[in-house]
Amino acid sequence: MMLKKIFILTLFLVSAFSQRSQRDFERELKAQNSAIQSLKDEIESTKKRIASENRKEKSSVRKMSNLSEEISLLQKLLNELGKEEKLLVTDITRLERKIGESENELEQLRILYAKRLSSMYKKGQISNLERVLSSTSWRQAVYRSKYLQIISKIDRETHDTIRSLLIEVGKQKLSLESALRKKRYLKREREQTLSQVRNKKKKEQRELSRIRKSKKELRNYLSEKQAGMNQLEVIIKKIREDIARLEREERIRKQQMALQSKEFPKLKGQLAWPAEGRVASKFGRQWNPKLKTTTENPGIDIKGKPGSEIKTVLGGVVTTITFIRGYGTTIIIDHGSGFYTVYSHVTNVETNVDSQVNSGDVIAYMGDSGSINGSQLHFEIWGEGKKLNPENWLRKR
């Protein structure tokens, strides 16, 4: 008897926990849907602005930059769709498991109930009053009366639990069908987005080819990069003056204490490299033999394999993920003590704004976003508002 009561109570607790888990999942899925919709709105807004610019602007550099920006947003959408698909796969697995558990619980309850009915049939059904009146003593009559009340209550609870489980299994199967439909829709949407990325990549390559063949377009590209440098300086200035900087500093300080790591200023010449590859362009003034002009490089350019990992050089907080003309998709990380690192021309970003990262975390992959020189990482270090030579801070190799 006690086992039956424990079994029914366990079912109730499992059901309550399952409902809480489902609510948590629904909140997470809702937030993901909101992020995707926001990104779609941004893509539409960017497309309209670019279409307007392209009607006026004939420069291949500007066209390539616009295409790179669109590709960057579409790749971001692909990543978000991928995250939602993973959430749905997790939910589908959970629902399939839950349906199996519910059906198993239902079968056990049915067996218990069938045994009870079978016992009643074999022994013959006599009224509760007869059972009480057939007692040999007053005390036995009281005990039988209480016992019969408990039995009757358990029978009702078992019946109600079976009914509830049948309804719950039905709901779970409907949820599973809905999740499977959503997954199929997401797969189609991802394939369409991927197709758009490939088409725009082809157009980007055509514009890139024109730029490489034309001195005028190369000069335009350098102007575009200078505009990007100015844009980055404005972003860094805003980050340094941001009210949230103090809260980030505290988070970074706690992270350093937990990991027993040194502060950025004490790690000169000790930082790990952010990517594998050779330094194609060094920090500072660079001579361009084709244009016979000198340009300023605020960081270093590391030439590497397309799709190779981009890693953080030290722990910190991601402050910015944005598209910068001439530099493509760019990530900025605050390391505390007034030091920041910048990672540009990246693709398939693996982190989010305000995320806390550790040294060596993969935050993106090497791409050619906004670059005319193929896959590379543009890497910068800023300290107290000044651009620093990254090679002085990275380990010798």
Rank of each mutant, 00 (worst) to 15 (best):
residue 26 E to S: 11
residue 22 Q to A: 14
residue 328 G to D: 04
residue 385 G to M: 01
residue 393 W to T: 00
residue 182 K to L: 11
residue 353 V to Y: 04
residue 61 V to G: 07
residue 190 R to Y: 13
residue 180 L to T: 13
residue 186 L to W: 09
residue 230 N to Q: 12
residue 12 F to I: 11
residue 208 L to D: 05
residue 194 L to M: 12
residue 80 E to T: 09
residue 184 R to I: 13
residue 46 T to L: 10
residue 373 N to S: 12
residue 224 E to C: 14
residue 257 M to V: 09
residue 192 Q to W: 07
residue 30 K to T: 09
residue 293 T to Y: 11
residue 311 K to Y: 06
residue 97 R to D: 13
residue 395 R to A: 06
residue 12 F to C: 05
residue 324 I to E: 06
residue 41 D to H: 10
residue 240 R to H: 03
residue 235 I to P: 02
residue 342 V to L: 10
residue 287 W to T: 08
residue 102 S to G: 10
residue 315 G to S: 10
residue 304 G to T: 09
residue 72 S to Q: 07
residue 355 S to P: 06
residue 182 K to R: 15
residue 291 L to Y: 02
residue 85 E to A: 15
residue 279 V to H: 00
residue 43 I to R: 12
residue 312 T to P: 03
residue 379 F to A: 00
residue 375 S to L: 02
residue 135 S to K: 08
residue 145 S to W: 06
residue 140 Q to N: 11
residue 172 Q to L: 15
residue 46 T to I: 03
residue 14 V to W: 06
residue 273 W to L: 14
residue 5 K to T: 09
residue 185 Y to A: 15
residue 347 T to P: 06
residue 22 Q to T: 15
residue 34 S to T: 14
residue 303 K to H: 08
residue 12 F to N: 04
residue 349 V to F: 01
residue 147 Y to Q: 11
residue 165 L to R: 03
residue 30 K to M: 12
residue 16 A to H: 07
residue 27 R to L: 06
residue 42 E to L: 12
residue 194 L to S: 14
residue 83 K to F: 11
residue 55 R to L: 14
residue 317 V to G: 00
residue 16 A to G: 06
residue 62 R to Q: 11
residue 184 R to H: 13
residue 229 M to S: 07
residue 361 D to F: 03
residue 204 E to L: 11
residue 374 G to A: 04
residue 174 L to R: 15
residue 290 K to D: 12
residue 268 K to Y: 00
residue 1 M to P: 04
residue 253 R to C: 05
residue 122 K to V: 09
residue 186 L to T: 10
residue 311 K to E: 05
residue 364 A to C: 10
residue 392 N to T: 09
residue 341 T to I: 07
residue 186 L to G: 13
residue 366 M to K: 04
residue 130 E to V: 08
residue 289 P to H: 02
residue 307 G to V: 11
residue 381 I to A: 04
residue 215 K to E: 14
residue 272 A to L: 15
residue 278 R to K: 12
residue 3 L to Q: 06
residue 289 P to N: 06
residue 4 K to V: 01
residue 282 K to L: 03
residue 217 E to W: 03
residue 38 S to Y: 08
residue 211 I to G: 00
residue 229 M to V: 08
residue 141 A to Y: 09
residue 42 E to A: 12
residue 24 D to P: 01
residue 204 E to K: 15
residue 154 I to T: 05
residue 111 I to G: 00
residue 1 M to Y: 05
residue 147 Y to R: 13
residue 294 T to C: 05
residue 159 H to Q: 13
residue 376 Q to M: 10
